[in-house]
């Protein structure tokens, strides 16, 4: 498990967040900040885009903002 404060951008981690509650792309990015993952911002954007396409989560417009979520 990552040391304190460090997180890993994995499909499992994204799946866990989206199963918990609907999140916007910005919410997710805040969970995987570059200073916590050690990834560059481009790498983070590309990785997250690939993971989201693979997970193919549900989408929901909340307060005019697109949210992703995964039903259990």
């Amino acid at each position: 498990t990552p040391s304190s404060g460090e997180v890993q951008l994995t499909e499992e981690a994204v799946r866990r967040y989206l199963s918990r509650k609907p999140m916007t792309t910005k919410d997710l990015l805040k969970k995987f900040q570059t200073k916590r993952t050690g990834l560059s911002s481009d790498a983070t954007v590309n990785a997250l885009a690939q993971l989201l396409k693979r997970l193919d989560p549900e989408r929901k417009l909340i307060a005019d903002k697109m949210h992703f979520f995964l039903k259990e």
Binding site: T25, L29, Q33, T34, S41, D42, T44, A49, L52, K53
Partner: peptide, 20 residues
């Protein structure tokens, strides 16, 4: 910084545009 998150969110949504 939230501006970094904003920029990255815009880039991410651009990546996902057909997906959104």
């Amino acid at each position: 910084s939230s501006s970094e998150a904003d920029e990255m969110a815009a880039a991410l949504e651009a990546e996902l545009n057909d997906f959104m």
